[in-house]
């Protein structure tokens, strides 16, 4: 599967309504996420940060989806591998590193949560937790709010294929389906729930088939193909805004890294399997697509790599030097401050 080679395909992003600049932006975002991710793993190994959980191999789907949404309008309920998605929604590399270093200025949680637990109200990125799939009913709640207030936005929520076994997956999607709410549910099927492979998690051949049980649209897409993901998410958004209800999207991909910095994946899968999927990595394929379209070059790519290296270095330096929270800040924000609590 080489992809993106025929003349017809070369113009695919334009056919989908994306400008050359937007296509390049997509590449820039996925590459930035990849580089931040790789450096975070090294930072953890060097003892500079406590933990990292990677999204490597999933950036193409995340960027494709995020570019089909409207940051600032739509609500994003991400899961813990969605670095590329939150970057596309406006989170900065410095902010991600502040979270990785658990510093006071971290907008996600003020250094309270593990990295990968995103949240940023101004950017409409909804705070999440670690018990998986709890965000799916929340997405239905945001979509219900859109319905009740007559606002034209969608809620977009992601989760893994293992998560799709949770009760909250079923309860949340069913609720949105019954009310025909403007919600998009995207499963990032990376084949593994930590160590347990797809066939030991799920009885159906595809996650997308589960949509049949809810009476909603179900779409399966190659998650390593950013433009295909863009296309299906854009269509899902249009359906949602037209009042035609939610869509379940399954973006098929592969987790190229261990589950987290606490996991040794070679206990449960082979190096050959991982290498096979690394050869199908969507990120270099997208770069090649841009070059084949004639809108990108090796020189530009080298320059971008330098630029991103500088951004990553700046983010790490900034976060490393930033102050930790004051110890007693652990007591803050259990409840609202008194004056706002007793509003009459």
């Amino acid at each position: 599967m080489t992809g993106y080679t025929s003349l017809e395909q070369q113009a695919k992003h334009r056919q989908l309504g994306l400008s050359d600049g937007q296509a390049i932006d997509m590449y820039r975002t996925m590459l930035l996420a990849r580089k931040l991710d790789e450096r975070s793993m090294l930072l953890q190994r060097a003892g500079k940060i406590n933990f990292h959980i990677s999204g490597i191999g999933q950036e193409t789907a995340q960027v494709g989806a995020a570019f089909a949404l409207q940051p600032g309008v739509d609500y994003l309920l991400p899961y813990y591998r969605d670095y590329a998605m939150v970057l596309a929604f406006g989170m900065t590399p410095r902010e991600l590193m502040l979270s990785a270093f658990a510093k006071a200025e971290d907008p996600n949680s003020g250094g309270r949560q593990m990295p990968g637990h995103f949240g940023h109200k101004r950017l409409k990125i909804v705070t999440g937790s670690s018990p998986v799939t709890t965000q799916v009913p929340h997405a239905a709640g945001f979509a219900l709010a859109a319905r009740m207030t007559g606002q034209k936005f969608v809620s977009f929520v992601t989760f893994g294929e293992g998560s799709s076994n949770q009760g909250d997956f079923h309860e949340g999607i069913n609720f949105a389906a019954v009310q025909r709410l403007p919600a998009i549910f995207m499963c990032e099927n990376n084949q593994y729930a930590i160590s347990v492979p797809y066939h030991k998690q799920v009885g159906t051949a595809n996650i997308a088939d589960r949509a049949i049980g809810y009476g909603i649209a179900g779409v399966r897409v190659d998650g390593t193909d950013a433009l295909e993901v863009y296309r299906v998410v854009k269509e899902a958004r249009e359906r949602a805004i037209r009042g035609e209800g939610p869509t379940l999207i399954e973006a098929v991909m592969y987790r190229l890294t261990p589950h987290s910095t606490s996991d040794n994946d070679l206990v449960y899968r082979t190096r050959e399997e991982v290498e096979y999927h690394r050869s199908r990595d969507g990120l270099p394929r997208f770069r090649q697509y841009l070059i084949d379209c004639g809108i990108w070059s090796e020189e530009q790519d080298a320059k971008l790599a330098e630029e991103i290296a500088a951004i990553v270095k700046d983010a790490i330096d900034y976060a490393d030097k930033a102050p930790y929270p004051a110890p007693e800040d652990a007591l803050k924000h259990v409840y609202a401050e008194e004056e706002s609590t007793w509003r009459s």
Partner: peptide
């Protein structure tokens, strides 16, 4: 609502985070 308590709470929580008062 559908007969599903986690959704009743979870949908309400989402709507509350949006700014409604469920």
């Amino acid at each position: 609502t559908p007969l599903a308590e986690s959704a009743i709470a979870g949908v309400a929580i989402g709507a509350a985070m949006y700014g409604l008062r469920p």
